[in-house]
Design a protein around this nucleic acid. Structure first.
Length: 330
DNA sequence: CGAAACATCCGCCACT
DNA sequence: GTAGTGGCGGATGTTT
């Protein structure tokens, strides 16, 4: 259970990435029934810590505070050729040894890499630095094409913005989509981008912006997920050939039509598992997978558990949270 | 589980 | 010449 979150910073720390961590984990939303964390920004060099934007951060927490954390966040690293302090690397290894998790945003992956924690794992970083990471650390399987990678104890994310996605992903795995979406709503960011989504989106336009025909089509498709939908059918609806439709689709959303559909269906199934007591078979029907076997396959692939197991752990987690809420209220 | 049938995706390229 | 379109074929992934 995630309770204690620490952000490890050194000189020339990136302001925005620190801000993302503060906003997601350091902002008290317990009044809204959302989980709260013991949160600290920890100076791993003598404070004040200068940010890359010129202002300084003074924090009462030092590197020793990392020993308490269930999750340590590395918000970036000022110079990818500069080796981080050994004490920080050791603190990260200790964290993973005691069953805690560590995550990086952007170039923070180089800190995790230097600690050896990424050896033999899959990882990502900003596309600009991916090649350098792969060259310096050949034991890491670097995937520069995704927003973030969850490798269990070690999580990495790409550029600045994907750090938000990874933080929300952590909330999602920890407390379910309901909590992650509620936090996303409060931050006014899109609810969820799947880790596998491309870093590069040619048209910097989100799904919901403008009244272009695609956003309308996506809304329609989302409303009809329980029915069998084909890429051809969607293309026909948009009055385009499959080829042109698919091309536009990728340019706007960053995913292919079919992948997008599966993502939507998994998210719908997840909601149904959280919010209803319908049998897995029924959930599969309603989310458009047709059969339970199909749902298990895609759910497992994208969430790393079975639907049944997900519901069980989510339920027990939210019951614990409800109890917590009652105690706080009383 | 694996094999066979089927759909999707993507580079290539001719065409408007 | 530039920009967008869409058919084709085979690699890849999905469904049965």
């Amino acid at each position: 259970m995630l309770k204690n979150v620490a952000v490890a910073i050194c000189q020339d720390a990136p302001a925005f990435e620190i801000g993302v961590a503060c906003e997601v984990f350091g902002f008290d939303r317990t009044a809204q029934g959302l989980p709260g964390y013991d949160f600290a920004v920890c100076a791993c060099e003598p404070p004040p810590i200068r940010t890359s934007s010129g202002f300084s951060i003074d924090t009462p927490y030092g590197i020793e505070r990392l020993a308490e954390a269930d999750l340590i966040i590395i918000p970036g690293w000022h110079d990818i050729h500069d080796r981080p302090p050994e004490a920080l690397l050791q603190a990260l290894r200790d964290a993973v040894d005691r069953g805690s998790r560590v995550m990086s945003m952007c170039t923070g992956a180089f800190v995790l890499a230097a600690s050896g924690l990424l050896d033999g794992r899959r990882a990502t970083t900003h596309w600009r630095d991916a090649e350098t990471l792969a060259r310096h650390y050949p034991k890491i399987t670097v995937d520069p094409s995704v927003l973030y990678i969850d490798d269990g104890a070690v999580l990495t994310s790409a550029g600045t913005g994907s750090g938000i996605d990874l933080c929300l992903h952590v909330l999602r795995t920890e407390h379910g989509a309901g909590v992650a979406n509620a936090v996303a709503r409060r931050m006014v960011v899109p609810p969820h981008r799947d880790g596998g989504q491309a870093q590069y989106i040619d048209t910097p336009v989100t799904e919901h912006s403008r009244g272009d025909d695609l956003s309308e089509l996506l809304a329609w498709a989302r409303a009809h997920l329980d029915q069998p939908l084909t890429v051809q059918g969607l293309a026909a609806r948009a009055n385009k050939s499959t080829r042109t439709f698919a091309r536009h689709f990728v340019a706007v959303t960053g995913t292919t039509p079919h992948q997008w559909l599966v993502t939507q269906r998994v998210e719908m199934a997840q909601r149904l598992l959280e919010e209803t007591d319908e049998a897995v078979e029924v959930v599969a029907q309603q989310s458009g997978f047709g059969t339970a076997a199909m749902l298990r396959h895609h759910f497992g692939q994208r969430r790393g558990t079975s639907p049944q197991m997900y519901r069980r752990t989510f339920r027990s987690g939210s019951r614990a949270r409800d109890r917590h809420r009652v105690l706080k209220a009383g």
